[in-house]
Amino acid sequence: MRRPVSYLALLAAVALIYLFMLGPILITAVVSFNRSDRSYFPPRGLSLHWWGAAFTPQWTGAFVFSLELAALSAIATTIAGLPLALAFRSYEFPGKAAIQAMTLGPLVLPSLVTGIALLQFLTLAGLGSWIGLPALLIGHVVICLPFSVRTIAISLASIPVSAELAAASLGASPGAVLREITLPLARSGVGAGMIFAFISSFDDVNLALFVSSPRQTPITVQIMQFLEFGFSPTLAALSILSMLVPLALVALCGRVVGIGGYLQQEQGHA
């Protein structure tokens, strides 16, 4: 089929937009192999020096801390999100609308504001010692919960009600229906919710900025703090490293849980 000129012009424009979307990330990747100590692009000479620098304790500590925080957040978010999604789906009860609104609230409020609110609350409540891992974990569960509840709700909604009725008619008690039918069929939503929570936590800057402690700082905040003093190609290497984690996660688990269908649910945390 011959394409009309206007369509070719559209394709050309889209190609340029793709360049715009992917260019900066590629540039960052290339800069990390720079030999010079400035972030030259194109790089002047190749070196793995900055990658080596990225693997010093200053950075690996924060990196590992971020991984731990993200894993804990993913697990805690799922533990909180699953009963919420189940209750929202199967029951009508007084206060349901209010609890639903409260659950989805963090989705529409800036996480930066959630961060400063949490900081003040903990300080005033005499829980200043929680600043660090506990506060980060709490904050990340708050901001990840809406994703988790929504992805689980979507997978629950796709279960035919009759499958659960059929199980009951075959002699399965309510507990057995949950264990044998509902949860196995909601697995992909739970998995996708966990992956989103992990990535949201791992990539979060806005909330972590306010409730990190000097000894418990995620990699994103560490980079932001370093940026106040200057730039270094190490940061490029670290940026790429921190991008590879979610990428690997999605590549590994994405197929298993069919993450694609849930991607539409994610919202901004810039």
Partner: peptide, 20 residues
């Protein structure tokens, strides 16, 4: 009695087979 104690066989309109 709850459904799981009634000892009935039911065939549903959409069959309600367990997809997993």
């Amino acid at each position: 009695l709850p459904p799981h104690r009634r000892d009935l066989g039911i065939v549903f309109q959409d069959y309600a087979l367990f997809p997993h």
